[in-house]
Amino acid sequence: AIERGSKVKILRKESYWYGDVGTVASIDKSGIIYPVIVRFNKVNYNGFSGSAGGLNTNNFAEHELEVV
């Protein structure tokens, strides 16, 4: 089962992080479509409006993740 702290591989082909491994930061139990927040070591794009980097978290559905 996917739980907080799990290392997961991203299976969503259109994702910037496809094939990468991230760490589960949290799981939303409220029934939303993409409840699993995954944190990565790298950012997906340069930040804007003065922020240092881009996003390094993204929401995924459990079926888009594979525990490694």
Rank of each mutant, 00 (worst) to 15 (best):
A1I: 11
A1W: 08
A1E: 10
A1N: 09
I2P: 06
I2A: 03
I2R: 01
I2Q: 00
E3P: 06
E3H: 08
E3G: 10
E3V: 11
E3A: 11
R4D: 08
R4A: 13
R4K: 13
R4Y: 10
R4N: 10
G5F: 03
S6M: 13
S6P: 03
S6K: 09
S6W: 10
K7F: 11
K7W: 11
K7S: 08
K7C: 15
K7A: 06
K7T: 08
V8I: 02
V8K: 01
V8T: 02
V8F: 00
V8H: 01
K9W: 00
K9V: 08
K9T: 04
K9I: 10
K9A: 03
I10P: 01
I10L: 03
I10E: 02
L11A: 03
L11G: 04
L11H: 05
L11W: 03
L11T: 05
L11K: 06
L11E: 02
R12P: 03
R12V: 08
R12Y: 03
R12K: 07
R12T: 07
R12M: 06
K13G: 04
K13R: 10
K13T: 12
K13L: 12
K13I: 13
K13A: 09
E14L: 06
E14Q: 06
E14V: 05
E14K: 04
E14M: 06
E14T: 09
S15W: 03
S15F: 03
S15P: 00
Y16Q: 04
Y16E: 08
W17F: 06
W17I: 00
W17L: 02
W17Q: 01
Y18F: 12
Y18D: 00
G19A: 06
G19N: 09
G19L: 13
G19H: 05
G19F: 10
D20L: 13
D20W: 09
V21Q: 03
V21N: 01
V21E: 04
V21L: 07
V21W: 08
V21F: 07
V21D: 02
G22V: 08
G22L: 06
G22C: 13
T23E: 12
T23N: 02
T23K: 03
T23Y: 09
T23F: 10
V24N: 01
V24C: 07
V24M: 01
V24P: 00
V24Q: 01
V24T: 00
A25R: 04
A25K: 08
A25S: 08
A25Y: 07
A25F: 07
A25M: 14
A25T: 13
S26G: 12
S26T: 08
S26V: 08
S26F: 11
S26N: 10
S26E: 13
I27D: 00
I27N: 02
I27G: 00
I27F: 08
I27K: 02
I27L: 06
D28Y: 04
D28A: 07
D28P: 02
D28S: 09
D28F: 03
D28L: 09
D28M: 08
K29M: 12
K29R: 10
K29L: 13
K29C: 14
K29I: 08
K29S: 12
K29E: 11
K29Y: 12
S30V: 06
S30I: 08
S30R: 08
S30G: 10
G31V: 13
G31P: 06
G31E: 13
I32N: 11
I32K: 10
I32R: 07
I32A: 11
I33H: 10
I33G: 12
I33V: 11
I33L: 13
Y34T: 06
Y34N: 12
Y34W: 08
P35T: 12
P35W: 14
P35G: 12
P35L: 15
P35N: 12
P35Q: 10
P35R: 09
V36L: 04
V36C: 06
V36S: 00
I37C: 15
I37D: 04
I37Q: 13
I37F: 07
I37E: 14
I37A: 09
R39Y: 10
R39E: 13
R39D: 09
R39S: 11
F40T: 03
F40H: 03
F40L: 05
F40S: 03
F40D: 03
F40V: 05
N41K: 14
N41C: 15
N41P: 11
N41G: 10
N41A: 11
N41W: 08
N41F: 08
K42C: 15
K42L: 05
K42V: 07
K42I: 07
V43G: 11
V43Q: 08
N44Q: 14
N44T: 04
N44E: 14
N44V: 11
N44L: 14
N44H: 14
N44P: 09
N44R: 07
N44I: 14
N44G: 07
Y45M: 15
Y45L: 15
Y45E: 15
Y45C: 15
Y45D: 15
Y45S: 15
N46C: 15
N46I: 05
N46T: 05
N46Y: 06
N46D: 15
G47V: 03
G47P: 12
G47Y: 05
G47F: 04
G47E: 15
G47D: 15
F48R: 04
F48T: 15
F48Q: 15
F48G: 15
S49A: 12
S49G: 13
S49C: 15
S49F: 13
S49N: 11
S49D: 15
G50D: 14
G50E: 15
G50W: 03
S51D: 14
S51T: 12
S51I: 10
S51Q: 11
S51A: 10
S51H: 08
A52M: 10
A52R: 03
A52F: 12
G53S: 11
G53H: 10
G53V: 10
G53K: 08
G53M: 05
G54F: 08
G54S: 08
G54N: 06
G54P: 09
G54T: 06
G54W: 07
G54R: 04
L55Q: 13
L55A: 11
L55V: 14
L55M: 13
L55S: 14
L55I: 14
L55W: 09
N56Q: 09
N56R: 09
N56M: 07
N56F: 10
N56V: 12
N56A: 08
T57Y: 14
T57P: 04
T57S: 09
T57I: 06
N58G: 15
N58C: 15
N58K: 05
N58A: 15
N58P: 03
N58E: 15
N59I: 05
F60D: 02
F60S: 00
A61D: 04
A61Y: 07
A61F: 07
E62F: 14
E62H: 09
E62S: 08
E62A: 11
E62N: 08
H63S: 12
H63D: 11
H63E: 10
H63P: 04
H63T: 08
E64M: 03
E64I: 03
E64K: 02
E64V: 03
L65A: 00
L65Q: 01
L65D: 02
L65K: 01
L65E: 00
L65C: 06
L65I: 06
E66F: 07
E66L: 10
E66H: 06
E66A: 07
E66N: 03
E66Y: 05
V67W: 06
V67M: 09
V67N: 05
V67F: 06
V68N: 02
V68P: 02
V68C: 13
V68Q: 08
V68W: 04
